[in-house]
Amino acid sequence: MSNEGVNKGRRNLLIGATAGVGAVGAVFAAVPFVKSWKPSEKAKAAGAPVETDYSKLENGQQITIEWRGKPVWVMRRDPAMLKAVTASNELVADPDSTNEKQQPENCQNEYRSIEPEIFVAIGLCTHLGCSPKLFADAGSVDATWLGGFFCACHGSKFDLAGRVYKSVPANANLEIPPYTIDTINKTILVGGES
């Protein structure tokens, strides 16, 4: 048999096109498989851990992520904020955060956090579940205000460690979820083992 009638350029084009289509098909087939490794939305809602990067978070800045259908705040506190936490001990109802159900054991400290400058809390008021807003500047809510979270729904106030002020409708500190922090990679895993 003779190869005189074979167009080698056309053969190479067809081989290349077939290989290209096969490669694209393999990628499209692999995407659902790789996505199946991630927790489903149902699993996330049921409490699967959620990871977030806090490396770009600047001093005084707060971001909100979702875990178990709840807003979770991640905030980087600057030295002035940390000083305000200590100064607000006289104003808050539970300065020592004695109720261990409100925070994991590794967060039962003055700043209610694993690392003092990184604050993680569930962003729901412990009165009726509204979402308080951050007012970091002293005096921005009232004359005694040293900075913290104010719930406009019914007037509950929390300091920059999420501790509830005395004589407000809320009767408990903001809840701290279980979390781990990776200070090398600058990530937080909310819902992870603490």
Rank of each mutant, 00 (worst) to 15 (best):
N3I: 08
G9A: 13
R11Q: 12
L13D: 02
I15L: 14
G16S: 14
G16Y: 02
A17L: 10
G20I: 10
A26N: 06
A30Y: 07
P32V: 08
S36F: 00
W37K: 15
P39C: 05
K42I: 02
A43E: 15
A45H: 03
A45F: 11
A45D: 15
A46Q: 05
G47V: 03
G47T: 02
G47A: 06
A48W: 06
A48M: 10
E51H: 00
D53I: 03
Y54I: 13
S55Y: 04
S55N: 03
K56D: 13
Q61I: 03
Q62V: 06
T64Q: 14
T64W: 07
I65T: 06
I65M: 12
W67K: 03
P71D: 05
W73L: 13
V74D: 05
M75N: 05
R77D: 13
R77C: 11
P79H: 02
M81Q: 15
A84H: 04
V85E: 05
T86S: 14
L91M: 15
L91W: 09
V92I: 10
D94F: 06
D94R: 01
D94M: 01
P95N: 02
S97P: 00
S97L: 05
Q103M: 10
C107K: 04
C107A: 09
E110I: 08
S113V: 05
I114E: 12
P116C: 08
I118R: 03
I118M: 14
F119N: 10
A121T: 06
A121W: 05
A121Q: 08
I122M: 14
I122K: 07
T126E: 13
T126G: 14
H127A: 12
H127R: 06
C130G: 06
K133R: 13
K133H: 05
F135D: 12
A138D: 03
G139Y: 05
V141F: 01
V141C: 14
D142C: 03
W145G: 10
L146E: 07
G147M: 02
G147S: 08
G148M: 12
H154F: 12
K157M: 15
K157H: 07
F158R: 07
F158V: 01
A161R: 03
V164L: 09
V164I: 09
V164E: 12
Y165V: 10
N171D: 09
N171L: 15
N173R: 01
P177N: 06
P178H: 11
T183M: 11
N185G: 03
N185H: 12
N185T: 11
N185P: 00
K186S: 07
T187V: 13
I188A: 04
V190A: 08
